[in-house]
Amino acid sequence: MRPEFTTKSLDYSQLFKIANTVTSIGIILVTSGGSWDITNHILNKPETFFAPPHAILYSGVGIALLGFVLLFASWQKSGKPSQYSRGIKIITIGIASLLAAGPIDFVWHSTFGLDGLLSPPHLVLIAGMGLTSIGALANVKAFLRETDKPNRFVIVVSMIPVWFSITGLFYSFSLPFSKTDYFDFNPNPMFAAGFAAVTYPFLITVILTSSAILSKNRFGTASLVGASYLGIMTLSAIIPNHTLIHTIPFYLANIIPIILGDYVLSKSKTSKHVMLAGTIFGSVFYFLYYPLITYTYNEVTLDKLMWPSLTSQIYFELVPLVAPFLIISGGVMGALGVRFAQKITS
């Protein structure tokens, strides 16, 4: 007697959602590895490609690529639904940039040796991370239109890589890590300080407010996104520098304004409440972007020689000098960020 096989057709729409999440997870690994790599470069001078942060970074590229292949295949098999076309296009350009960044980086290293944070190959890499994660987020936004109960996990996983990728771009224009033997791409210190004061609070607010709006203002989603950000930064930027470990309680206390802003958003009935939440998020950017922000504001104030073991000392010395002004400017940018978040999530 011949065995009978029952075939169950693959649910391509489900596979599409899983692949989209896998793509975002890949970019989370890329950005986390990148953040750890920055810390590694501050602490020592790695002279080999085979460093643990690079392993995480390139594993992330592999996972994002796998996610993209599954995503594209499932999109085609499910009849190329038009609501995902834009997301797919953005991810395709992003993945192409990610893959192109490797050879460009190799050529750059071969020609000019060690490169700084801001360099053409790094910009290609950051563009790849940013576009891939934004494309995946666009797909999530399309999923969420079809459901009344948004999946928090999916929102958190799609928001975090966008936050880190754009932060990477903003770091490039605000941190003095781009001077090499061949080029000095370091931003002007005054420009860097102004740029950070405008862009960081705007970004924080857009990410956290969008997370809340996408989850239909359910309390907890923005807090989870914020907690994930703090967790990844603690693991990749604080713990590797043992002289900063004792400052972890300070850093984790940043969950307080995030939870508060999230709560305000969940109860918001008027646009004033939403603006208030944005102001809360934006006003704390100097504390959320610890420890690297120390380099930006030290340059325009104390101008001390920065050593990894002196980072927290200089950071807290800067608090009374710059934080009062940055809280105000951050609050204003946060209020503007809310408007932008409402626009892109509508």
Binding site: H246, T247, F250, A253, Q313, E317, P320
Partner: peptide, 12 residues
Amino acid sequence: NFAVFPQTYQDV
């Protein structure tokens, strides 16, 4: 952030 943490960490 203005009173407790800076005091604590700058004394290290």
